[in-house]
Design a protein around this nucleic acid. Structure first.
Lengths: 219, 219
DNA sequence: GTCTATATTGAGATAGAC
DNA sequence: GTCTATCTCAATATAGAC
């Protein structure tokens, strides 16, 4: 509102910086992804960059927010033909295994921001609550349709699901042979969520994911 | 072997430093727990402390190793009357909820050390493998005794269990109302591990834990 | 052998010129 | 909106006292 003619330029520059941050983090790892490195990658000085985001923490929060937005479009409700929670989560996790830099950013940053007073504390607090809410709501929908075995507590299952996704990332970070998506799918099978969400008739639960192609997030 | 008379003194000092580190981390949080703060707490200079451990990373690894050792004695095989895996894990997690500083140290440090080449990378890599191995082995024992529903993959369940413990810590860090032990117990119930491990006859699965008293780890 | 004092390096944050 | 210069602070390495 109060911003002047160069508003569009600022927005474009912010997008450019987010992309550069992603690239540097992916290439050099989180601890080498300093403000200076990212600034170099985008052709700015350190403080030329910080002018747009204020601090490293705020920059990283925006990177993660941007990631969530893209993931929501690609795997969230309304994405693809079947907005089914179990399959959406498995696909999301499968996608994550192809972007280790982002996963590392998420893991380290969320661990740091757990400390009260950290600039990103509120972001993650809200994100966890939202994630649990989305999953719990999807489970309740299945229950209303009668496609889930009775006796399941949607809120509790949501906590377990979110915890599993986080925890699998930790093990995967130390052993890339850990198949995050496979283990999540196994859990969903165990609690009856996967077959319920997909096809009550009972087709092959692993069919239908042609390759691990990136979703149409960027195109 | 080559060490001389002051060996015992060095060992005692190391123990003193580990205790001080725990206290500072618990009181001020991980990011305020600098080498200088810990050194002050134990009455040493920064490098007086680093002389014993070499670096902050090595000090923290020793803190976590010491914690694991105490936990193993208190909750591992042979601790208490019933060396039953499900109950041991639930009790361990319940105990963790009473030492937020240690949990924060573990979470942040394991996230940092995921980067290849970090001084603590090997420690966590080994720790994850060991944790999975212990749980998988305990499950296999139950299976051999015929106390577990058939069709369970011990190795897969172990991965899920470890992931759950890590992931629940993350959510708990942002909302201390998240009952880590309760959610883990719920998971173990869901997969049939808890009732199998405890009492095939089917007693109240939450009885027998009088209070959340600390185990005889220090005495 | 053990410690104190100090210097160096590298990170992010801040101030103010253009 | 971007830059240069400077500040603070943690971690590490070195020199040398006892």
């Amino acid at each position: 509102m109060a911003r002047r003619g160069s508003y569009a330029k600022g927005v474009a520059k912010r997008g450019e910086i987010l992309d550069a941050a992603l690239e540097v983090i992916g290439r050099d790892g989180y601890s080498r992804a300093t403000v200076r490195e990212i600034a170099d990658a985008v052709g700015l000085s350190q403080n030329g960059l910080l002018h747009h985001f204020g601090s490293k923490e705020r920059l990283f929060v925006e990177v993660l927010r941007h990631r969530d937005e893209l993931d929501r479009l690609a795997y969230g409700e309304g994405a693809g033909q079947r907005p089914d929670i179990a399959e959406s989560l498995v696909r999301l996790v499968r996608h994550n295994a192809r972007v280790p830099g982002l996963v590392q950013l998420y893991s380290r940053f969320s661990a740091e921001a757990a400390e009260e007073g950290h600039p990103a504390h509120g972001f993650f607090q809200e994100r966890y609550a939202t994630a649990r809410g989305i999953i719990a709501e999807a489970i309740r929908s299945l229950q209303e349709e009668g496609r889930l075995p009775p006796g399941h507590d949607a809120d509790r299952l949501a906590v377990l699901g979110v915890a599993l996704m986080d925890g699998l990332q930790a093990q995967w970070a130390y052993d890339s042979g850990v198949d995050m998506a496979g283990h999540l799918a196994h859990f969903l099978d165990l609690v009856g969520l996967r077959s319920a969400a997909r096809n009550p008739a009972g087709e092959d639960p692993d069919a239908g994911d042609p390759a691990d192609e990136d979703p149409p997030a960027g195109g």
